[in-house]
Amino acid sequence: MELEAARILGKLIGAGLAMIGAIGAGAGIGIVTSGAVQAMGRNPDASGNIQTNMILGIAFAEAVAIYCLVVALLILFVF
């Protein structure tokens, strides 16, 4: 039972550590959105085009966080 407890402890700590990678994605999404909102404020006519590109940029930045999330989920529920 000691070994089982240690295994669970390791799983939980590992999943928590894996999610550290979400820091970068959070900052990245913030930067993308701030840039896009500023651009929309300066040039409201182009906001449709900017919005499309903003969502694409957010999707790319978010993908990194999603990798972390998948790794954390794998650690928690598979191993």
Binding site: I66, Y67, V70
Partner: peptide, 10 residues
């Protein structure tokens, strides 16, 4: 594949 799967599973 991981983007869609991760978002919806989470």
């Amino acid at each position: 594949s991981f983007r869609l799967f991760g978002n919806i599973f989470a």
